[in-house]
Design a binder for these strands. Sequence first.
DNA 1: TTATCAATCTCGCAA
DNA 2: TTGCGAGGTTGATAA
Lengths: 226, 226
Amino acid sequence: MRLLVARCQVDYAGRLTAHLPFANRLILQKADGSVSIHADDRAYKPLNWMNPPCTITVDDASGDDLVERWTIRNKDADTLTISIAEVLHDSAHELGVDPGLQKDGVEAHLQALLAENPETFGAGWRLVRREHPTPIGPVDLLYRTPEGLLVAVEVKRRGEIDGVEQLTRYLALLNEDPTLRPVRGVFAAQLIKPQAAVLASTRGIDCVTVDYDLLRGIDNVEDRLF
Amino acid sequence: MRLLVARCQVDYAGRLTAHLPFANRLILQKADGSVSIHADDRAYKPLNWMNPPCTITVDDASGDDLVERWTIRNKDADTLTISIAEVLHDSAHELGVDPGLQKDGVEAHLQALLAENPETFGAGWRLVRREHPTPIGPVDLLYRTPEGLLVAVEVKRRGEIDGVEQLTRYLALLNEDPTLRPVRGVFAAQLIKPQAAVLASTRGIDCVTVDYDLLRGIDNVEDRLF
DNA sequence: TTATCAATCTCGCAA
DNA sequence: TTGCGAGGTTGATAA
């Protein structure tokens, strides 16, 4: 990884065109060839960047009163041009391959917990299938109630309007099949936004707010029993 | 901006929990207090980060064979813990405030061009209003055809299924108003994905693929005439 | 390769 | 403050 602190001007041309006037910035060149330009604020997002794979060409541009000019291109012919006027710091470091991030608590885990705990929705519910395939995508969870009715469940970490729309499309499709009909819908999330809840109710979809920590607790208790 | 290259272990607890085992990484501490941790690949996304505003506490952790332990917290009590075992590089740089990015070519510009060129959709079309307000959000463009019919246009850079859903909601609402009814819909984008086009046709919505460069050309020609 | 969907999304704007 | 939509979204996964 090369760390370059420099007074520079940056131009990007690709899906949009963007320009950064001369100022002091950090330029990061990584082992995969990627480049990013950071200002002295915001943790997450660089001012400009070029994702790998890309190629870097370095030109002498002393005629333009520059130390160097970098031209970085990817396969879509997007170009990032960095005009370096003054170098304030330049160092390189061998970091090696990163062992990578271990995550927990995402939607997949929530779905798995709900698959293992059908009673979250109602007494006597049974899981029919996870990721039930349809032509327009998989239904997260499909249950059968004690009355023998099918219920399609859409799981989100945060329940927003898009999720209700998605479930609505699944329900319309499932209810076209006479062997399944009638199929009800349940929108399950850790947090359901009011607008999503209102839209769901107009569609006849029930909302269930899920307590992730509680479910995980139930799961742990069951683990201990077995 | 402080640049720290160090062998470190990182733990995040917030919306999810995540763990990074010991390895050499770049730690960026910026003037706004934010912190990000980068591996030697990927231009855009840090492995871990904490957005501003946040507070950093530095502890001596020599008892754990560490140089330092940083604990970073935001207002939601998310915590990012960086355990630093060895420092390979440490430098600080005054960059000043960045003049910021100048952009062109986003959806807003596309919408402006379409507002100025109603004939893109049909001869004799007139613009009624940009950002026509409704209770569920603004309709991008509202036109009247030579026949006196209203047409709501949703503009996207890339036309996908969500955009069709959005326009459908607007049309349902507009058509509830007897003083406007009937209102047709047009989905306009630089590129319309097949799935979106199919969904639009089932909703009776027309699709128009817009050539941004051509429109901009027309615009330039008009500028010259005036 | 393409399509789909989640993300500690981030970021900006408006109510 | 919250909500909503765009983003050079990025990134992962399945078809």
